[in-house]
Design a protein around this nucleic acid. Sequence first.
DNA 1: ACCTGAACACCGTTCAAGT
DNA 2: ACCTGAACACCGTTCAAGT
Lengths: 223, 223
Amino acid sequence: MTARPDTPRSRRERPAKPALSREGIVAAAVAVLRAEGLQKVTMRRLAQELDTGPASLYVYVRNTAELHAAVLDELLGTIGPVPAEGSWRERLEQVLTAYTAMLFEHPSLARSALTAWPSGPHYLNLIENLLALLDEGGVPPAQAAWGVDLLLQQATATAAEHSAGDTQDDWDALTDALRNVSDRTHPHIAARSDDLLSGAPMARLSWRFQALITGIERTAVPD
Amino acid sequence: MTARPDTPRSRRERPAKPALSREGIVAAAVAVLRAEGLQKVTMRRLAQELDTGPASLYVYVRNTAELHAAVLDELLGTIGPVPAEGSWRERLEQVLTAYTAMLFEHPSLARSALTAWPSGPHYLNLIENLLALLDEGGVPPAQAAWGVDLLLQQATATAAEHSAGDTQDDWDALTDALRNVSDRTHPHIAARSDDLLSGAPMARLSWRFQALITGIERTAVPD
DNA sequence: ACCTGAACACCGTTCAAGT
DNA sequence: ACCTGAACACCGTTCAAGT
Protein backbone atom coordinates (compact mmCIF):
# COMPACT_ATOMS: atom_id res chain seq x y z
CA MET A 1 0.00 0.00 0.00
CA THR A 2 1.51 3.26 -1.07
CA ALA A 3 0.51 6.54 0.38
CA ARG A 4 -1.80 8.37 -1.97
CA PRO A 5 -0.86 11.98 -2.48
CA ASP A 6 -4.47 13.12 -2.34
CA THR A 7 -5.00 11.71 1.15
CA PRO A 8 -2.13 12.99 3.23
CA ARG A 9 -1.35 11.18 6.45
CA SER A 10 -2.66 13.87 8.70
CA ARG A 11 -6.08 13.44 7.12
CA ARG A 12 -6.07 9.67 7.30
CA GLU A 13 -5.19 9.29 10.97
CA ARG A 14 -8.65 10.43 11.86
CA PRO A 15 -11.16 10.40 9.03
CA ALA A 16 -11.71 13.87 7.69
CA LYS A 17 -14.90 15.49 8.83
CA PRO A 18 -17.35 14.47 6.11
CA ALA A 19 -19.04 17.21 4.14
CA LEU A 20 -22.55 17.98 5.28
CA SER A 21 -25.41 16.71 3.14
CA ARG A 22 -29.10 16.08 3.51
CA GLU A 23 -28.52 12.34 3.35
CA GLY A 24 -25.84 12.50 6.02
CA ILE A 25 -28.09 14.52 8.30
CA VAL A 26 -31.01 12.13 7.85
CA ALA A 27 -28.73 9.12 8.41
CA ALA A 28 -27.44 10.65 11.62
CA ALA A 29 -31.02 11.37 12.65
CA VAL A 30 -32.03 7.75 12.10
CA ALA A 31 -29.05 6.59 14.16
CA VAL A 32 -29.92 8.90 17.04
CA LEU A 33 -33.58 7.84 16.81
CA ARG A 34 -32.65 4.17 17.08
CA ALA A 35 -30.25 4.75 19.94
CA GLU A 36 -32.12 7.31 22.01
CA GLY A 37 -35.56 8.07 20.63
CA LEU A 38 -37.06 10.96 18.71
CA GLN A 39 -36.90 13.39 21.58
CA LYS A 40 -33.13 13.43 21.08
CA VAL A 41 -33.41 14.02 17.34
CA THR A 42 -32.96 17.75 17.69
CA MET A 43 -31.11 20.21 15.53
CA ARG A 44 -28.64 20.90 18.30
CA ARG A 45 -27.98 17.26 19.04
CA LEU A 46 -27.52 16.38 15.37
CA ALA A 47 -25.17 19.30 14.89
CA GLN A 48 -23.10 17.99 17.78
CA GLU A 49 -23.14 14.52 16.23
CA LEU A 50 -21.94 15.95 12.92
CA ASP A 51 -19.37 18.15 14.57
CA THR A 52 -20.86 21.46 13.51
CA GLY A 53 -23.21 24.14 14.76
CA PRO A 54 -27.00 23.92 14.59
CA ALA A 55 -27.25 26.76 12.13
CA SER A 56 -25.38 24.73 9.51
CA LEU A 57 -28.17 22.17 9.24
CA TYR A 58 -30.65 24.75 8.03
CA VAL A 59 -28.90 24.76 4.66
CA TYR A 60 -30.25 21.23 4.04
CA VAL A 61 -33.37 20.91 6.18
CA ARG A 62 -36.13 23.48 6.49
CA ASN A 63 -36.96 22.75 10.11
CA THR A 64 -37.31 20.03 12.70
CA ALA A 65 -40.69 18.82 11.40
CA GLU A 66 -39.29 18.25 7.93
CA LEU A 67 -36.39 16.35 9.38
CA HIS A 68 -38.74 14.05 11.27
CA ALA A 69 -40.76 13.42 8.10
CA ALA A 70 -37.58 12.45 6.26
CA VAL A 71 -36.67 10.05 9.06
CA LEU A 72 -40.07 8.41 8.81
CA ASP A 73 -39.78 7.92 5.08
CA GLU A 74 -36.43 6.28 5.68
CA LEU A 75 -37.91 3.81 8.19
CA LEU A 76 -40.79 3.09 5.84
CA GLY A 77 -38.20 1.36 3.68
CA THR A 78 -37.93 -1.37 6.31
CA ILE A 79 -41.49 -2.68 6.37
CA GLY A 80 -41.08 -5.11 3.50
CA PRO A 81 -43.17 -5.93 0.43
CA VAL A 82 -46.81 -6.94 0.19
CA PRO A 83 -47.07 -10.62 1.18
CA ALA A 84 -47.75 -13.03 -1.69
CA GLU A 85 -50.19 -15.37 0.02
CA GLY A 86 -53.71 -14.79 1.23
CA SER A 87 -56.83 -12.92 0.24
CA TRP A 88 -56.59 -9.23 -0.57
CA ARG A 89 -58.15 -8.44 2.80
CA GLU A 90 -55.60 -10.54 4.66
CA ARG A 91 -52.71 -9.05 2.76
CA LEU A 92 -54.08 -5.55 3.24
CA GLU A 93 -54.32 -6.11 6.96
CA GLN A 94 -50.79 -7.50 7.00
CA VAL A 95 -49.34 -4.45 5.26
CA LEU A 96 -51.16 -2.16 7.64
CA THR A 97 -50.03 -4.19 10.62
CA ALA A 98 -46.42 -4.06 9.45
CA TYR A 99 -46.66 -0.29 9.08
CA THR A 100 -48.23 0.05 12.52
CA ALA A 101 -45.72 -2.31 14.13
CA MET A 102 -42.85 -0.21 12.79
CA LEU A 103 -44.42 2.93 14.22
CA PHE A 104 -45.05 1.20 17.54
CA GLU A 105 -41.30 0.98 17.94
CA HIS A 106 -41.13 4.74 17.51
CA PRO A 107 -44.43 6.11 18.76
CA SER A 108 -43.20 9.65 18.97
CA LEU A 109 -42.37 9.46 15.29
CA ALA A 110 -45.96 8.40 14.65
CA ARG A 111 -47.06 11.44 16.55
CA SER A 112 -45.07 13.72 14.37
CA ALA A 113 -46.16 11.84 11.22
CA LEU A 114 -49.71 12.85 11.97
CA THR A 115 -48.92 16.47 11.25
CA ALA A 116 -45.76 16.33 9.13
CA TRP A 117 -46.64 14.09 6.23
CA PRO A 118 -43.79 12.38 4.51
CA SER A 119 -43.69 12.63 0.75
CA GLY A 120 -40.64 10.49 0.07
CA PRO A 121 -40.34 7.44 -2.16
CA HIS A 122 -41.15 4.85 0.50
CA TYR A 123 -44.36 6.60 1.45
CA LEU A 124 -45.43 6.72 -2.18
CA ASN A 125 -44.77 3.00 -2.50
CA LEU A 126 -46.93 2.29 0.50
CA ILE A 127 -49.82 4.30 -0.95
CA GLU A 128 -49.43 2.51 -4.27
CA ASN A 129 -49.53 -0.90 -2.58
CA LEU A 130 -52.63 -0.07 -0.57
CA LEU A 131 -54.43 1.26 -3.63
CA ALA A 132 -53.53 -1.88 -5.57
CA LEU A 133 -54.92 -4.13 -2.84
CA LEU A 134 -58.19 -2.24 -2.60
CA ASP A 135 -58.44 -2.29 -6.38
CA GLU A 136 -57.89 -6.05 -6.35
CA GLY A 137 -60.75 -6.30 -3.87
CA GLY A 138 -63.05 -4.52 -6.29
CA VAL A 139 -63.37 -1.36 -4.22
CA PRO A 140 -64.35 1.51 -6.53
CA PRO A 141 -61.29 3.69 -7.15
CA ALA A 142 -62.66 6.91 -5.67
CA GLN A 143 -63.57 5.08 -2.47
CA ALA A 144 -60.21 3.37 -2.45
CA ALA A 145 -58.43 6.71 -2.68
CA TRP A 146 -60.24 8.14 0.32
CA GLY A 147 -59.92 4.80 2.06
CA VAL A 148 -56.14 4.72 1.84
CA ASP A 149 -56.05 8.05 3.57
CA LEU A 150 -58.33 6.74 6.29
CA LEU A 151 -56.38 3.53 6.81
CA LEU A 152 -53.02 5.23 7.04
CA GLN A 153 -54.32 7.85 9.40
CA GLN A 154 -55.87 5.21 11.60
CA ALA A 155 -52.65 3.22 11.76
CA THR A 156 -50.59 6.31 12.47
CA ALA A 157 -52.95 7.59 15.13
CA THR A 158 -53.07 4.23 16.88
CA ALA A 159 -49.30 4.16 17.11
CA ALA A 160 -49.17 7.80 18.18
CA GLU A 161 -51.56 7.09 21.01
CA HIS A 162 -48.95 4.89 22.58
CA SER A 163 -46.28 7.56 22.71
CA ALA A 164 -45.42 9.73 25.71
CA GLY A 165 -44.29 8.31 29.01
CA ASP A 166 -47.35 9.34 30.96
CA THR A 167 -49.73 7.18 28.96
CA GLN A 168 -49.93 4.72 31.85
CA ASP A 169 -51.06 7.35 34.33
CA ASP A 170 -53.68 8.69 31.97
CA TRP A 171 -54.89 5.20 31.29
CA ASP A 172 -55.18 4.51 35.00
CA ALA A 173 -57.08 7.74 35.51
CA LEU A 174 -59.47 6.90 32.70
CA THR A 175 -60.10 3.30 33.81
CA ASP A 176 -60.77 4.50 37.33
CA ALA A 177 -63.17 7.12 36.03
CA LEU A 178 -65.00 4.58 33.86
CA ARG A 179 -65.25 1.98 36.63
CA ASN A 180 -66.49 4.41 39.23
CA VAL A 181 -69.11 6.09 37.12
CA SER A 182 -72.65 6.19 38.51
CA ASP A 183 -75.18 4.00 36.72
CA ARG A 184 -77.76 6.71 37.23
CA THR A 185 -75.92 9.39 35.31
CA HIS A 186 -74.00 7.11 32.91
CA PRO A 187 -75.97 3.89 32.52
CA HIS A 188 -74.34 2.76 29.27
CA ILE A 189 -70.83 3.19 30.60
CA ALA A 190 -71.72 1.45 33.84
CA ALA A 191 -73.23 -1.48 31.95
CA ARG A 192 -70.30 -1.81 29.60
CA SER A 193 -67.21 -0.54 31.34
CA ASP A 194 -65.55 -3.94 30.93
CA ASP A 195 -66.00 -3.89 27.16
CA LEU A 196 -64.66 -0.38 26.93
CA LEU A 197 -61.43 -1.56 28.48
CA SER A 198 -61.22 -5.10 27.18
CA GLY A 199 -59.06 -6.69 24.54
CA ALA A 200 -55.39 -7.11 23.80
CA PRO A 201 -53.96 -4.24 21.77
CA MET A 202 -53.36 -6.42 18.72
CA ALA A 203 -56.89 -7.83 18.81
CA ARG A 204 -58.33 -4.34 18.97
CA LEU A 205 -56.08 -3.15 16.18
CA SER A 206 -57.08 -6.04 13.97
CA TRP A 207 -60.76 -5.38 14.68
CA ARG A 208 -60.25 -1.73 13.78
CA PHE A 209 -58.68 -2.55 10.44
CA GLN A 210 -61.48 -4.97 9.64
CA ALA A 211 -64.16 -2.45 10.56
CA LEU A 212 -62.41 0.18 8.47
CA ILE A 213 -62.03 -2.04 5.44
CA THR A 214 -65.68 -3.06 5.61
CA GLY A 215 -66.76 0.55 5.95
CA ILE A 216 -64.58 1.64 3.04
CA GLU A 217 -65.96 -1.16 0.85
CA ARG A 218 -69.56 -0.19 1.50
CA THR A 219 -69.55 3.59 1.65
CA ALA A 220 -69.80 5.48 -1.61
CA VAL A 221 -68.12 8.85 -1.92
CA PRO A 222 -70.42 11.81 -2.54
CA ASP A 223 -70.81 13.05 -6.13
CA MET B 1 -72.84 49.79 50.02
CA THR B 2 -70.84 49.67 53.19
CA ALA B 3 -67.26 48.62 53.39
CA ARG B 4 -67.00 45.07 54.60
CA PRO B 5 -64.51 44.56 57.40
CA ASP B 6 -63.13 41.39 55.90
CA THR B 7 -62.07 43.14 52.71
CA PRO B 8 -59.99 46.09 53.80
CA ARG B 9 -59.44 48.91 51.33
CA SER B 10 -55.84 48.14 50.63
CA ARG B 11 -56.89 44.73 49.39
CA ARG B 12 -59.74 46.03 47.31
CA GLU B 13 -57.85 48.73 45.39
CA ARG B 14 -56.14 46.00 43.44
CA PRO B 15 -57.66 42.58 43.95
CA ALA B 16 -55.53 40.49 46.24
CA LYS B 17 -53.49 37.86 44.49
CA PRO B 18 -55.93 34.94 44.49
CA ALA B 19 -54.82 31.73 46.16
CA LEU B 20 -53.56 29.13 43.73
CA SER B 21 -55.86 26.23 42.92
CA ARG B 22 -56.19 23.62 40.25
CA GLU B 23 -59.35 25.29 38.96
CA GLY B 24 -57.64 28.65 38.78
CA ILE B 25 -54.71 27.22 36.90
CA VAL B 26 -56.95 25.42 34.41
CA ALA B 27 -59.06 28.57 33.95
CA ALA B 28 -55.95 30.61 33.24
CA ALA B 29 -54.82 27.92 30.82
CA VAL B 30 -58.11 28.07 28.92
CA ALA B 31 -57.83 31.85 28.73
CA VAL B 32 -54.30 31.70 27.36
CA LEU B 33 -55.34 28.96 24.91
CA ARG B 34 -58.18 31.09 23.57
CA ALA B 35 -56.03 34.19 23.29
CA GLU B 36 -52.76 32.76 22.01
CA GLY B 37 -52.96 29.06 21.32
CA LEU B 38 -51.72 25.96 23.08
CA GLN B 39 -48.07 26.61 22.39
CA LYS B 40 -48.30 29.44 24.90
CA VAL B 41 -49.98 27.27 27.54
CA THR B 42 -46.71 26.52 29.28
CA MET B 43 -45.93 26.20 32.94
CA ARG B 44 -43.73 29.27 32.81
CA ARG B 45 -46.28 31.39 31.01
CA LEU B 46 -49.10 30.35 33.34
CA ALA B 47 -46.97 31.04 36.37
CA GLN B 48 -46.36 34.54 35.02
CA GLU B 49 -50.08 34.94 34.42
CA LEU B 50 -50.82 33.90 38.00
CA ASP B 51 -48.04 36.02 39.41
CA THR B 52 -45.96 33.20 40.80
CA GLY B 53 -43.07 30.94 39.84
CA PRO B 54 -43.38 27.86 37.67
CA ALA B 55 -42.49 25.53 40.51
CA SER B 56 -45.63 26.51 42.40
CA LEU B 57 -47.90 24.99 39.77
CA TYR B 58 -46.53 21.52 40.36
CA VAL B 59 -48.45 21.37 43.63
CA TYR B 60 -51.69 21.18 41.62
CA VAL B 61 -50.75 19.74 38.26
CA ARG B 62 -48.52 16.76 37.65
CA ASN B 63 -47.03 18.03 34.42
CA THR B 64 -47.77 19.87 31.20
CA ALA B 65 -49.55 16.92 29.57
CA GLU B 66 -51.99 16.61 32.45
CA LEU B 67 -52.67 20.33 32.25
CA HIS B 68 -53.50 20.05 28.56
CA ALA B 69 -55.85 17.15 29.22
CA ALA B 70 -57.68 19.21 31.84
CA VAL B 71 -58.02 22.07 29.37
CA LEU B 72 -59.54 19.73 26.81
CA ASP B 73 -62.09 18.39 29.27
CA GLU B 74 -63.05 21.96 30.01
CA LEU B 75 -63.64 22.75 26.33
CA LEU B 76 -65.61 19.54 25.92
CA GLY B 77 -68.23 21.24 28.06
CA THR B 78 -68.96 23.61 25.17
CA ILE B 79 -70.02 21.18 22.48
CA GLY B 80 -73.68 20.97 23.49
CA PRO B 81 -76.12 18.11 23.97
CA VAL B 82 -77.12 15.36 21.56
CA PRO B 83 -79.57 16.84 19.02
CA ALA B 84 -83.19 15.76 19.43
CA GLU B 85 -84.14 15.33 15.79
CA GLY B 86 -83.00 12.82 13.22
CA SER B 87 -82.06 9.18 12.97
CA TRP B 88 -79.52 7.75 15.38
CA ARG B 89 -76.94 7.80 12.60
CA GLU B 90 -77.54 11.45 11.83
CA ARG B 91 -77.41 12.42 15.46
CA LEU B 92 -74.28 10.37 15.99
CA GLU B 93 -72.60 12.09 13.10
CA GLN B 94 -73.69 15.47 14.45
CA VAL B 95 -72.18 14.82 17.86
CA LEU B 96 -68.94 13.67 16.30
CA THR B 97 -68.89 16.68 14.00
CA ALA B 98 -69.42 19.03 16.93
CA TYR B 99 -66.56 17.39 18.79
CA THR B 100 -64.31 17.61 15.74
CA ALA B 101 -65.29 21.21 15.00
CA MET B 102 -64.33 22.21 18.53
CA LEU B 103 -60.95 20.54 18.13
CA PHE B 104 -60.46 22.17 14.74
CA GLU B 105 -60.39 25.49 16.52
CA HIS B 106 -57.54 24.17 18.66
CA PRO B 107 -55.74 21.60 16.56
CA SER B 108 -52.70 21.51 18.77
CA LEU B 109 -54.97 20.52 21.63
CA ALA B 110 -56.24 17.65 19.50
CA ARG B 111 -52.66 16.63 19.00
CA SER B 112 -52.04 16.46 22.68
CA ALA B 113 -55.39 14.73 23.29
CA LEU B 114 -54.18 11.83 21.21
CA THR B 115 -51.63 10.94 23.85
CA ALA B 116 -52.92 12.57 27.03
CA TRP B 117 -56.43 11.23 27.42
CA PRO B 118 -58.80 13.34 29.42
CA SER B 119 -60.77 11.58 32.12
CA GLY B 120 -62.87 14.48 33.33
CA PRO B 121 -66.66 14.71 33.58
CA HIS B 122 -67.24 16.16 30.12
CA TYR B 123 -65.30 13.41 28.46
CA LEU B 124 -67.30 10.78 30.33
CA ASN B 125 -70.52 12.42 29.19
CA LEU B 126 -69.38 12.29 25.60
CA ILE B 127 -68.60 8.58 25.85
CA GLU B 128 -71.98 7.95 27.46
CA ASN B 129 -73.79 9.80 24.68
CA LEU B 130 -71.98 7.94 21.94
CA LEU B 131 -72.67 4.57 23.57
CA ALA B 132 -76.34 5.46 23.94
CA LEU B 133 -76.63 6.35 20.25
CA LEU B 134 -74.97 3.14 19.08
CA ASP B 135 -77.19 1.20 21.45
CA GLU B 136 -80.23 2.92 19.99
CA GLY B 137 -79.02 1.83 16.57
CA GLY B 138 -78.99 -1.77 17.70
CA VAL B 139 -75.20 -2.13 17.60
CA PRO B 140 -74.21 -4.99 19.93
CA PRO B 141 -72.76 -3.51 23.12
CA ALA B 142 -69.28 -5.01 22.85
CA GLN B 143 -68.95 -3.65 19.33
CA ALA B 144 -70.32 -0.31 20.44
CA ALA B 145 -67.71 -0.09 23.19
CA TRP B 146 -64.82 -0.64 20.79
CA GLY B 147 -66.54 1.55 18.25
CA VAL B 148 -66.71 4.58 20.54
CA ASP B 149 -62.98 4.35 20.96
CA LEU B 150 -62.50 4.18 17.23
CA LEU B 151 -64.82 7.10 16.49
CA LEU B 152 -63.26 9.40 19.08
CA GLN B 153 -59.78 8.55 17.97
CA GLN B 154 -60.68 9.20 14.36
CA ALA B 155 -62.19 12.57 15.18
CA THR B 156 -59.23 13.56 17.33
CA ALA B 157 -56.68 12.43 14.78
CA THR B 158 -58.43 14.30 11.98
CA ALA B 159 -58.31 17.50 13.96
CA ALA B 160 -54.73 16.88 15.01
CA GLU B 161 -53.70 16.48 11.40
CA HIS B 162 -54.56 20.10 10.85
CA SER B 163 -52.28 21.44 13.53
CA ALA B 164 -48.79 22.83 13.03
CA GLY B 165 -48.03 25.77 10.79
CA ASP B 166 -46.10 23.80 8.22
CA THR B 167 -49.05 21.67 7.18
CA GLN B 168 -49.38 23.66 3.98
CA ASP B 169 -45.81 23.03 2.91
CA ASP B 170 -46.10 19.32 3.60
CA TRP B 171 -49.37 19.18 1.73
CA ASP B 172 -47.78 20.92 -1.25
CA ALA B 173 -44.86 18.52 -1.18
CA LEU B 174 -47.20 15.54 -1.07
CA THR B 175 -49.51 16.75 -3.83
CA ASP B 176 -46.49 17.45 -6.03
CA ALA B 177 -45.12 14.01 -5.32
CA LEU B 178 -48.45 12.35 -6.11
CA ARG B 179 -49.00 14.30 -9.33
CA ASN B 180 -45.51 13.69 -10.65
CA VAL B 181 -45.38 10.00 -9.96
CA SER B 182 -44.52 7.73 -12.90
CA ASP B 183 -47.35 5.56 -14.18
CA ARG B 184 -44.84 2.78 -14.74
CA THR B 185 -43.77 2.49 -11.11
CA HIS B 186 -47.00 3.70 -9.48
CA PRO B 187 -49.86 2.99 -11.85
CA HIS B 188 -52.64 3.16 -9.26
CA ILE B 189 -51.50 6.50 -7.92
CA ALA B 190 -51.08 7.88 -11.42
CA ALA B 191 -54.58 6.75 -12.40
CA ARG B 192 -56.18 8.15 -9.27
CA SER B 193 -54.10 11.08 -8.07
CA ASP B 194 -57.11 13.39 -8.41
CA ASP B 195 -59.24 11.23 -6.13
CA LEU B 196 -56.49 11.05 -3.57
CA LEU B 197 -56.53 14.81 -3.29
CA SER B 198 -60.17 15.57 -3.96
CA GLY B 199 -63.00 16.62 -1.71
CA ALA B 200 -63.75 19.42 0.70
CA PRO B 201 -62.55 18.69 4.23
CA MET B 202 -66.09 18.48 5.60
CA ALA B 203 -67.21 16.11 2.85
CA ARG B 204 -64.27 13.83 3.54
CA LEU B 205 -64.89 13.97 7.27
CA SER B 206 -68.53 13.09 6.83
CA TRP B 207 -67.60 10.18 4.55
CA ARG B 208 -65.14 8.96 7.15
CA PHE B 209 -67.72 8.96 9.90
CA GLN B 210 -70.18 7.11 7.70
CA ALA B 211 -67.62 4.49 6.72
CA LEU B 212 -66.65 4.07 10.37
CA ILE B 213 -70.21 3.71 11.58
CA THR B 214 -70.97 1.15 8.88
CA GLY B 215 -67.83 -0.80 9.73
CA ILE B 216 -68.60 -0.73 13.44
CA GLU B 217 -72.15 -1.95 12.83
CA ARG B 218 -71.01 -4.91 10.78
CA THR B 219 -67.84 -6.11 12.42
CA ALA B 220 -68.17 -8.48 15.36
CA VAL B 221 -65.57 -8.37 18.12
CA PRO B 222 -63.53 -11.56 18.59
CA ASP B 223 -64.59 -13.97 21.37
C1' DA C 1 -48.75 21.80 53.36
C1' DC C 2 -47.82 25.15 50.33
C1' DC C 3 -44.97 28.29 47.96
C1' DT C 4 -40.76 30.14 46.06
C1' DG C 5 -36.11 31.55 43.73
C1' DA C 6 -32.75 29.73 41.54
C1' DA C 7 -30.68 26.44 39.02
C1' DC C 8 -30.02 22.50 35.69
C1' DA C 9 -30.27 21.02 31.34
C1' DC C 10 -31.88 21.78 27.54
C1' DC C 11 -34.75 23.68 22.96
C1' DG C 12 -35.57 26.09 17.59
C1' DT C 13 -34.29 29.52 14.80
C1' DT C 14 -32.03 33.75 12.97
C1' DC C 15 -28.37 36.65 11.66
C1' DA C 16 -24.13 38.91 10.70
C1' DA C 17 -19.77 37.59 9.56
C1' DG C 18 -16.59 34.72 7.51
C1' DT C 19 -14.59 31.40 3.73
C1' DA D 1 -22.84 28.87 -1.77
C1' DC D 2 -21.88 27.09 2.35
C1' DC D 3 -20.69 27.28 7.04
C1' DT D 4 -20.26 29.21 11.59
C1' DG D 5 -20.44 31.43 16.50
C1' DA D 6 -23.17 33.80 19.02
C1' DA D 7 -27.29 35.43 20.37
C1' DC D 8 -32.42 35.72 21.13
C1' DA D 9 -36.12 33.99 23.21
C1' DC D 10 -37.69 30.65 25.19
C1' DC D 11 -38.81 25.52 27.48
C1' DG D 12 -39.95 21.53 31.73
C1' DT D 13 -38.76 20.10 35.93
C1' DT D 14 -36.32 19.67 40.42
C1' DC D 15 -34.68 21.04 44.77
C1' DA D 16 -33.38 23.29 48.95
C1' DA D 17 -35.08 26.76 51.60
C1' DG D 18 -38.59 29.32 53.49
C1' DT D 19 -43.45 30.22 55.62
